[in-house]
């Protein structure tokens, strides 16, 4: 895209403050705050195509996908294994492990720890993603 916004783009803050005391659209033909704009009126706050083309951005998206996709597949499979086994393998699930406590209860209980574990791993990974995003933003603000 050949929109010439390289220079002014470099100087301005990329994320305009829109939260005035009352952030409602003023009457008349004044410019509306950024979030009030419909898609057609939206003036870009950043050169989106340029950001999207940055190697750092592609790495960020890839890194996120590499975590989120397998994590999602894992939790969905692990979760649906529970109702599926409870429904189709009741014999296995009623097997008692400790005293009267059976596989079904332990498997259900394990789901809570699975969820917490994935959440913890994601938060750790996401801190890395935040750093990557921050570097993209500071590079943009630096103008190159």
């Amino acid at each position: 895209m050949s929109r010439e916004k390289g220079k002014e783009f470099a100087e301005q803050d990329l994320t305009p403050m829109t939260g005035a005391a009352t952030d409602v659209a003023p009457l008349g033909r004044q410019q509306k705050p950024a979030h009030e704009l419909t898609a057609d009126e939206d003036i870009d706050v950043a050169d989106w195509d340029r950001v999207a083309a940055m190697a750092e951005f592609k790495q960020l998206v890839l890194a996120k996908r590499k975590f989120i996709l397998p994590a999602t597949i894992f939790f969905v499979v692990y979760y649906f294994a529970l109702p599926a086994l409870v429904g189709y393998a009741p014999g296995l699930m009623s097997k008692r492990v400790f005293g009267v406590v059976n596989v079904a209860y332990l498997f259900a209980l394990s789901q809570f720890f699975m969820a917490w574990l994935i959440a913890a791993l994601y938060v750790r990974a996401a801190n890395r993603f935040d750093g990557m995003a921050q570097r993209i933003i500071s590079k943009l603000k630096g103008g190159r």
């Binding site: 990329l14 994320t15 403050m17 829109t18 939260g19 898609a39 950043a46 989106w48 950001v51 993209i136």
Partner: peptide
Amino acid sequence: KFTELTVRANTGLGAEKATS
């Protein structure tokens, strides 16, 4: 607009700010 949405969603550029 998908490019723009992807950049916004992943970097937080142009996201709504807090009011003090």
